[in-house]
Design a protein around this nucleic acid. Structure first.
Lengths: 160, 160
DNA sequence: TATGCCCCTTACGTTAACGTCAACAGTCGC
DNA sequence: GCGACTGTTGACGTTAACGTAAGGGGCATA
C-alpha cells in the first residue's frame, strides 16, 4: 500500500484510548491476549494506530450489544483480508446470519423493554406525585444526566 | 380479589416452563434464590402460576437485552404494589430513567451492528461466490433456520 | 420389587471478563 | 539522583450466572 507515510498517522498510548473510551489498561491488554487487538510496540510499550482505535470502537460496541469477545473476534477477522481457509469463512457466514437474526430479535426485545420501563416510570411518578412529591427529581437533573451521557459518546461519531 | 377461583388457573411444573422457554431447572431455581420468582409449593414441588410464568417471560427478555438479574429484580418489584419505602422508589425511578437512556443507546448500537454484519455478509458472500461457490449455503437453509427461530418464540405472543 | 422419571436440596466446579496486586523498567522535571 | 508518572509482565482474586454431581424422596409402569 502506498501513501502510508503522509497523513497524520497518529498513534495513541494505552491510557489515551482508555480515557477516551472509559476503559482500563487491563481490559485493552486482555483484548490483546484474546487476539482482538494487536498494537505495535515501541520497545516495551504498546502503540495503537487509528486502525487499532477503530477496532476498539467495534469491540466496545459489540460488547454493548451483548456479543462475546469470541464473537467479536470472528467479526474483526473478516477485516483482515487473508482468505486462508475458505470453508472456515463459509461457516462464519452462517454464524453471522444467525447473529443478525438474533440482533433483530434483540432489537424488538429492547423496544418492549423500553416501553415497559417507560410505563413503570409513569406509574412510579404518579404514585410519588400523589404521596411524596418532594421526592420527585427535578427535570433539570434528568436533563443534565442526559447531557453527561451524550458527552461520553459524542467523540465516537465520525470514527471508523 | 374476588373471581379468582374460576378461570382455568392453570399451573405449570418446572419442567414445563423449562421446555417451553428452553431454560433449565437449575436456572429457574437460581432465579428463585435471587428473589425473582416465588412459585407456590405442593409438598416439596414447585408449582408455577400464570403470574410466575409471566414474570419468567420478563426475566428472560430482560436477560436478552442485557439486564442483570439484579436489575430485573428491581423492575419486577414494581409489579408488587407495596409502597413500603418511598425513598427507595424515588431511587428506582432515577435508575429506570438511566436504564431507558442506556437501552436507547443500545438500540442504536444494535442498528449499527446489524448493518455491519450485513455488510460483512455481503462481502463474504461475494468472496465465496467468486472462489468457492460450492460452499455457498442454499437459500432454503436460511429460510428454514428463520422459521425454526420464529417457532421458538411464537408462543410468547399474547403472554404477559 | 425393580426400573425409570421427575422432583428436591446441598455443595462444589466453571466460564467470561476483567480487577487487583506485586515487582520491575523508562523518562521527565528538579 | 529521586520521586512521580506511565508503562510492562505475571499471577491470583472476583463476580455473575449458572453447570454438574451427589444423595434422597415420590409415583408409575413393567
Amino acid at each position: 500500500m502506498p501513501s502510508e507515510l503522509r497523513r497524520p498517522e497518529r498513534t495513541f498510548t494505552i491510557r489515551q484510548l482508555c480515557t477516551e473510551f472509559k476503559a482500563t489498561p487491563r481490559a485493552l491488554r486482555f483484548y490483546e491476549d484474546k487476539g482482538l487487538l494487536t498494537p505495535a510496540r515501541d520497545g516495551m510499550n504498546r502503540v495503537y494506530s487509528y486502525k487499532d482505535r477503530a477496532r476498539l470502537i467495534l469491540i466496545l460496541r459489540g460488547k454493548r450489544v451483548g456479543l462475546s469477545l469470541q464473537e467479536i473476534r470472528e467479526i474483526l477477522e473478516l477485516y483482515g483480508e487473508h482468505d486462508e481457509a475458505m470453508t472456515q469463512n463459509a461457516h462464519s457466514l452462517k454464524k453471522f446470519r444467525e447473529k443478525i437474526v438474533d440482533l433483530e430479535q434483540q432489537r424488538e426485545d429492547i423496544e418492549g423493554a423500553i416501553n415497559e420501563l417507560r410505563a413503570a416510570c409513569e406509574r412510579l411518578e404518579k404514585h410519588l406525585a400523589a404521596k411524596r412529591p418532594d421526592l420527585l427529581p427535578k427535570a433539570a437533573d434528568y436533563d443534565q444526566m442526559l447531557r453527561a451521557r451524550l458527552d461520553g459518546h459524542q467523540e465516537l461519531a465520525g470514527a471508523k
